[in-house]
Simulated assay, not measured.
Amino acid sequence: MYKEGFIEVPGGRVWYQKFDENGNGTPLLVLHGGPGSSCFSLQVLKALSKDRPVILYDQLGCGRSDRPTDKSLWRIERFVEEVGQVREALHLDEVHILGHSWGTTLAAAYALTKTSGINSIIFSSPCLSAPLWEQDQKRNLQKLPVEVQETIKRCEENGTTDSEEFEAAIEVFAQHFVNRMEKKPEWLEQRPPEYRNAEIYNIMWGPSEFTVLGNLKNFDCTEQLKEITCPTLFSCGRYDEATPETTEYYSNLTPGSTFHVFEKSAHMPYIEESEEFLEVMDDFLTNIDRK
């Protein structure tokens, strides 16, 4: 069964889709990356709906959701409230949460409100500390050709991160640390560019991946991870922006968590190694539902 529609949240309406093949497992709510991206690339997760309902939605301001112009909406507290509104509207009294990248930032912030009914959290390629993420990207940059490093540094210093040379340098970075596939899936290449909202990204993160200037600059919940007591799975790609070292560090701070590395992937293992990704997620969720 497939269903889609809109849900009223603070600031407008968000678009959601629900996949349900009549599985009786606890529903899975997916929080996409960004901020300012969409759930488009996470469509592969609908395969998990054989055992449980799977809900994906585009956060406010991006994808197929409303595009309000009020810049005060782009802060993590409002996005946390949005997750609660989506759960309430879809009657998700008990839920598993899978966050990817910025979606893990949101998942952690939401879980730390001590809300009830979260049966587990999957932190996929996590960003749980903006300062740590920034440090890791600076280290990742050092693995690239010197001219690429210099271009990125120069464009950041000159405020020309919207230039073609910066875009070209970022593409090299992406081939190493975001998606290492030589040939991307055709459906992924068809993602409408208007689904992204650069304004949200700039306000919350900044004009560049490598230096956090937005309102998430000081986000760091590492000291609070011990307060997350539901089962957790931390995963990342071997070549991920969310480095295996930092992802394992987060996992070690979280009681009873498990940790998995996708050996052939960067930041998009759900596409780069989709079969293994789905298998690992399904095993984790099914084991929890059986308890």
Results as ranks from 00 to 15, higher is better:
Y2M: 14
E4M: 11
I7H: 06
W15P: 06
Y16R: 04
T26C: 08
P35V: 00
F40E: 00
V44M: 13
D58S: 04
T69H: 11
T69I: 09
L73V: 01
E82T: 08
G84T: 07
I97T: 00
T104G: 04
A111C: 09
L112E: 05
L112N: 05
I118H: 05
S125D: 12
L132Y: 15
W133H: 14
D136T: 09
R139T: 12
L141I: 05
L144V: 03
P145N: 04
V146A: 13
Q149I: 05
C155E: 11
A169E: 04
I170S: 15
V172M: 01
H176T: 13
P185C: 04
W187I: 02
A198N: 15
I200K: 00
I200T: 00
S208C: 05
F210W: 12
L213S: 15
C221H: 13
E227R: 06
P231E: 06
L233W: 05
L233P: 06
Y239V: 05
E241C: 11
E241I: 10
T246R: 10
T247R: 00
G256D: 06
S257L: 07
F262V: 02
E263R: 09
E263T: 10
M268A: 14
P269F: 05
E272M: 05
E275W: 14
E276C: 08
M281L: 11
D282F: 13
N287M: 12
